[in-house]
Write a protein that binds this DNA or RNA. Sequence first.
DNA 1: ACCCAGGTGGCCC
DNA 2: GGGCCACATGGG
Length: 213
Amino acid sequence: MKIYRALKTRFGSGMWWPHETPFEVMVGAILTQQTVWKNVDLAIENLKKKGFMDPGPLAEAPIKEVEKCLRPSGFYKQKSARVQNLARYVTDNYNGDIGSFFDRGVDHVRNELLSLPGIGPETADSMLLFAGNRAKFVVDAYTFRVFTRLGVDFEGRYDVAQDFFEKRLPEDAELYKNFHANIVELAKNYCKVRPLCRKCPINEYCTYPGKRI
DNA sequence: ACCCAGGTGGCCC
DNA sequence: GGGCCACATGGG
């Protein structure tokens, strides 16, 4: 909670995941895997231009066309198959209605997402939090890096890390969104593989040996 | 010329 | 269950 407040003071609480629809968030969650957002944004714009940013049209789109759109976001063949599979799943089972897809027990929705190819724990939780507005804390590589340098041991496990945060924070989707966004901001600016610790806003909590460089 | 990026799935032991 | 590896483009 101290870290949350320190980061909020430094980075604020502006909206982070830009989108027009929940489905766009879900597609973006897959596209942003191991990829910078700038390239994801190009791919999303390409999909929108073709009218593919909806479950029905994306489900019906020729895969080659989808691949052309997704080229900038990397791993484009895999990602094309995966986003189209997601589109087909929600059209076939929920008539393309994302609202009704999320309108069930969180664990149930989460397991359903995890059963789809290309959706692992982080992507599922990103969808639940940012598209479904459910209070699921998202753990990514930045979260691991930042909190490992703060001296926390997650045993390298996603579920351990997630429990760590969900036990310590109020169950509040907006807070989770904000905290995750600010962890990413922190990591991109100060907590890279080679850290830039001089002006890091949470330096006083850090146990990383190189923090005095 | 490297190294990194808002992971996941497959294969091997 | 843990340790590699492929997947692919774009920027520092």
